[in-house]
């Protein structure tokens, strides 16, 4: 079974994001970038499937600028077998990504595509679902457990108020949630070996799909600064203050 894992290069989760002065977006100049944490969980799950003998090959794909090659190398160092970089310097929205991934699926014929449930930069939470729709494949989103057995994937999902387990016929789409696994550190020797694993360089034009943006970003602003709290004497004062602020 071949597993395809899309990985996105995003602003590092430790970096405090700053908005550009013209409010057109987040300033990414000289900012540390790394693999979307949910995608790391996806790579880890795929590599575990391979280590368990369930998967035979793990292919990682990234869409974005040349530097996404580093993100792919990280995935290869974790244990993926080969990479595909679809190079573009333009903004690609979830629908465009889903269309490109559909084309990659047509070429690669994986039985399972494991995606992060969302990317921490735009928090869209759309690509997996859109890809499932475009392929007309079953989907198990927000996975916290994945078991593949005899042509089926049993996916336990995190839903409001509990867990739900769905059985999907392969091929299928899975999107990963935080608690699915704890991704490994790529070992230093494996980082060296990853250098020798192949990465296929592609262009968006190779896939013949329409990736024109459907959305326009009007404005990006910093979240409002939290105001200092106040310690009150007793409960009646608290109630009257809350009333004055219109909270009661």
């Amino acid at each position: 079974m071949k597993v395809l894992v899309p990985v996105k290069r995003v602003i590092d989760y430790n970096v405090k994001a700053r908005v550009k002065p013209d409010q057109s977006g987040v300033d990414l100049a000289n900012v540390k970038m790394s693999m979307n944490p949910f995608d790391e969980i996806s790579v880890e799950e795929a590599v575990r499937l391979k280590e368990a003998g369930t998967a035979t090959e793990v292919v990682v794909v990234s869409i974005g600028p040349q530097q996404c090659q580093e993100t792919l190398r990280t995935a290869l160092a974790m244990g993926a077998d080969r990479g595909i970089l679809i190079k573009t310097d333009d903004k690609v929205e979830p629908l465009a990504v889903a269309k490109l991934l559909k084309a990659v699926v047509a070429e690669e014929s994986p039985e399972l595509v494991i995606l992060g449930k969302q990317a921490i930069d735009d928090d869209s939470n759309q690509t997996g679902q859109m890809l499932a729709a475009l392929l007309d494949w079953p989907q198990g989103t927000f996975a916290n457990e994945v078991k593949v057995d005899g042509g089926k994937a049993n996916v336990t999902r995190e839903i409001d108020g509990g867990l739900q387990t769905v059985a999907l016929d392969l091929p299928a789409i899975v999107t990963t949630d935080l608690r699915l696994n704890e991704p490994r550190y790529a070992s230093l020797p494996n980082i060296m070996k990853a250098k020798k694993k192949p990465i296929d360089m592609k262009e968006i034009g190779d896939y013949g799909v329409d990736v024109a943006p459907r959305l326009t970003t009007v404005k990006v602003t910093e979240p409002p600064v939290r105001e200092a709290g106040e310690i009150v004497e007793d409960v009646p004062t608290l109630v009257s203050k809350l009333k004055a602020k219109g909270a009661l």
């Binding site: 090659q69 580093e70 990280t74 160092a77 550190y185 230093l188 980082i191 060296m192 250098k195």
Partner: peptide, 12 residues
């Protein structure tokens, strides 16, 4: 090692 590999190693 090449710069990219070295950076990845140090980063890890």
């Amino acid at each position: 090692y090449d710069q990219e590999t070295r950076d990845a190693l140090i980063e890890m």
